[in-house]
Amino acid sequence: MSNANVQAVARYQNDFLREVEERVEEGHMVKMCMQCGVCAGSCPFGPDWEHSPQKIFMMIRAGKRDEVLGSDSMFMCTSCYSCIVRCPRELPITHIMHGLANYAHRLGLAPKGQPTREFATLFWNNLVKKGRVNELTLTLGHYFTNGLVSGIKTALGMQRIGLGLFLAKRLNPMEIFGGHGVKDLKGFHAIVAKAKEIEDRKKGFTA
């Protein structure tokens, strides 16, 4: 069988849809989309992405696994919930987008170097570290994601803002040495680890 035929066999069959239903947050709602497009039109970053949510849902139903999981569209979501409140079928679109992004990320299929993918990862790791977000290390960490030189440039570019915030007592340079955090850090980490373990087990990720 030629490659094209292999693809044809899988098309519009429910394999990928089932995978999404089982392994993606709120994935069981993907099938309820009726392709009205209100989500696509509601997203503030619609013009910036390749696939609208409604189109992603159709792609899932059409079995386009690689295209969906390789799409950077999910990372454009700013969690503004405009799509959710307007969706006539009450699909939790924001969460599905997050779920797909998470799933693609975990599988390593998400676009490499996608800036929001990296920032979001950084954010989570940052918060997990101390139980609370350290705004300074988060910011600096982000600026240096693309390497030292580019990081210095960005950081310098944003220096004025940082300085302003510092003067307004809204950024504490001392945070770099520790800063806010939960006291029972051990317990916090245990919870996160356990939750991750349960979820991974359920979704079939093996560590």
């Binding site: 947050e25 779920g99 918060l127 349960i198």
Partner: peptide, 21 residues
């Protein structure tokens, strides 16, 4: 108290860890 995870935590955090914290 600890961080809520914020929506942007989705990518790495996943569902249950976010809810658990």
């Amino acid at each position: 108290w600890n961080c809520c995870g914020a929506s942007v935590g989705y990518c790495e955090g996943g569902e249950l860890p976010r809810i658990a914290i």
